[in-house]
Design a protein around this nucleic acid. Structure first.
Lengths: 259, 259
DNA sequence: ACATAAATCCCTAAAAATGAGATTATTGTT
DNA sequence: AACAATAATCTCATTTTTAGGGATTTATGT
């Protein structure tokens, strides 16, 4: 209940953590219970968070996430070079194949869809912006991990060993590492129904300017629509998209630095 | 520079304020300068904010807003009853008229577009999700203020008197109040080029369950496309949309309470 | 492997956070 | 419009954390 003892910034931010898909509205009373804060303390935090716009309280309906959240996401959408440069490649891919095409950004150990296009109605496997994705499984995850420098990769494998083992990537860090080396040699990752049953994922890394990939471009397509040849063809296009987006990003960064 | 003295939650959250359309990337050095925090302090805050996911630091490129922002916005989009119930009405309106249709939510003194549809390419007046709007001007603002209970309305008028006077709504609180009473009687607000030159806005309030409107539904349309009759017709539809969304929201809230 | 820059650690005075209980606003109701 | 019930804020002494100079460690690039 109380694990953020002694750090009012953390304690305040912990309030944001309780908002979830299942529970987007909390009364002060419920928050006191959940977080174990005293009444005045909680109200102080709530006041500050509301003033910052991160929370919003509508009369009679408790607290919810606030307008600042929407504004900040707007800022990100509006100026994220990855999205700005990648969107047209997603369109390309969805026009060519009956698929969903995604851009997934990596933030440390989290990966998150930031943009998606689809040419086929498939609510089941749809990944809209903002939906978190698992780092231990799926083509996207692997297409990111495989291209990380060893220094970052090994600890990450260790942190996600359980998931990685369960999908058969290897039983030891070394074995997983070897599997990922194969992905790296191929230049892309494929996964059969690892995230959504019956759906094949094909993903390639996107670079910014450094040596670690910052994102992944991915096509997901119904398994019964593709055979080995199709996958080869699609993966070539996905890799190409990854390369082109990477190039645009690194150009942009160069120019940015000059300005 | 330092005005948040003595409140580490506020001081930490102040970091989020420096991110703007013009500046979405800050190095620790720049933040120290801008906020006047000492090095260890700043790093402590940054660490906490990053752990919370509100910030993200990519090697060599300073800090940016983080994945938590995107996830929280996803939560809001996904479960905002206003959006879920209102989207189809926006579609209706854009299908009928060559316009942009918006849903704008009120958060205290801030109003923010949360959803929009358009049937005409008009980047100039386009208001995508997340773009803040002025509270002192435009049909949307007025359609919200006019229906507020006096207790909330009068202080709000006072806070925005300057803007309200400049668009000719009145020179005193009482005069503005009277103008807004007329809006209330009409049931909707119209504005000619107040927000975007040459664009007419027609807006009606949306209620939740209480007596204050929580949002506004609005149609913006090129001024040269409409005459008085058109405006009468459109406003009838906008009001109707507002009423129907309100009804859906209040029903939903009733049911929610029962569950 | 090494040099350079970046991030964290150590520490104690000084300042802020905390929470019990009282107080004051805010709502909803008759 | 006055009132009751609830919600939010205030007061204040005590405890706890914070802040920041300077040293140190850890990353990062060559």
């Amino acid at each position: 209940m109380t694990e953020n003892a002694g750090n009012s910034l953390k304690r305040g931010l912990a309030i944001l953590e309780v908002f979830s898909e299942d529970r987007l509205e909390w009364t002060p009373e419920e928050l006191m219970e959940k977080l174990g804060y005293s009444r005045p303390t909680l109200y102080r935090y709530l006041k500050t968070l509301r003033e910052a716009g991160l929370l919003s309280s509508s009369a009679n309906a408790g607290f919810t996430l606030g307008p600042k959240v929407v504004e900040m996401d707007f800022l990100l959408r509006k100026s994220d070079a990855l999205i700005l440069n990648g969107q047209k490649h997603l369109k390309n891919l969805t026009e060519r194949y009956a698929c969903t095409a995604l851009l997934v950004r990596r933030y440390g150990d989290r990966i998150l869809c930031v943009a998606s296009e689809r040419s086929v109605a498939n609510p089941r496997s749809s990944y809209p912006r903002g939906r978190p994705m698992p780092l231990g499984r799926g083509a996207i995850a692997r297409s990111l991990m495989a291209f990380l420098p060893r220094r970052q990769l090994v600890p990450m494998i260790e942190r996600h060993m359980e998931d990685l083992r369960s999908i058969g990537l290897g039983n030891t860090v070394e074995e997983v590492h070897e599997s990922l080396r194969r992905v790296k040699r191929a230049g892309y990752a494929v996964a059969f129904g690892e995230v959504t049953p019956g759906v094949v994922g094909i993903a390639a890394p996107v670079y910014d300017a450094g040596r670690s990939p910052v994102a992944s471009v991915c096509v997901t397509i119904a398994g019964h629509l593709v055979n080995g040849n199709d996958i080869d063809e699609i993966s070539a296009h996905v890799r190409q998209a990854g390369r082109e987006i990477s190039e645009a990003l690194s150009l942009e960064r160069e120019n940015g630095k000059m300005a």
